[in-house]
């Protein structure tokens, strides 16, 4: 199996990795880079627990090849807090009880982060549409939606 040297920025840090052609980005992030906040739930792009930010877009890293990330900027849940200060979406998820088992949470947060960049002042309908690629089995979504709304308001007021 051919191997490739790739390098990309993960949460602001330069990363070099030797990967197989077929190796998935999520496996490289979790196993080579040791950042296990990004999870694996379905391997078919449906559940969204593997969502990461790739060059400013939300992608499901279980169906992105690691070689596709060569030269790119990747952000995961571990990159949300800056200098020890939590991001507004993280604060809001805690405040509004937007998580239970925590398994979908990293994907939800990184998607919510990107969604609020795209639409800083969303309606509930827009939040529902914006997060529809991320499944949650625990919360019934209501508090997640509330948390995204609260985060948006907080980010607007800064």
């Amino acid at each position: 199996m051919a191997k490739h040297n790739i390098s990309f920025k993960l949460n602001g840090q330069q990363v070099n990795a030797l990967v197989e052609s077929r190796e998935l980005l999520v496996h490289v992030i979790r196993e080579q880079c040791g950042q296990t906040g990004t999870h694996i739930g379905c391997e078919t792009s449906h559940c969204g627990v593997c969502t990461v930010d790739l060059n400013g877009e939300s992608v499901k890293s279980c169906t992105v090849l690691a070689v596709q990330a060569d030269g790119s900027e990747v952000m995961t849940v571990e990159g949300l807090a800056q200098n020890g200060v939590l991001h507004a979406v993280q604060e809001a998820f805690m405040q509004e009880h937007g998580l239970q088992c925590g398994f979908c949470t990293p994907g939800m947060l990184i998607r919510a982060y990107r969604f609020l960049q795209e639409n800083p002042n969303p309606t509930e309908e827009e939040i529902r549409w914006g997060l529809s690629g991320n499944l949650c089995r625990c919360t019934g979504y209501q508090n997640i939606i509330k948390a995204v709304k609260v985060a948006a308001e907080k980010m607007q007021s800064v």
Binding site: T36, G37, A81, Q90, G102
Partner: peptide, 16 residues
């Protein structure tokens, strides 16, 4: 919840 700080920072420890 006291569980939340680790989960929102990607610091939970699941089996995988």
């Amino acid at each position: 919840r006291k569980e939340d700080p680790r989960f929102i920072q990607g610091k939970g420890t699941y089996v995988d």
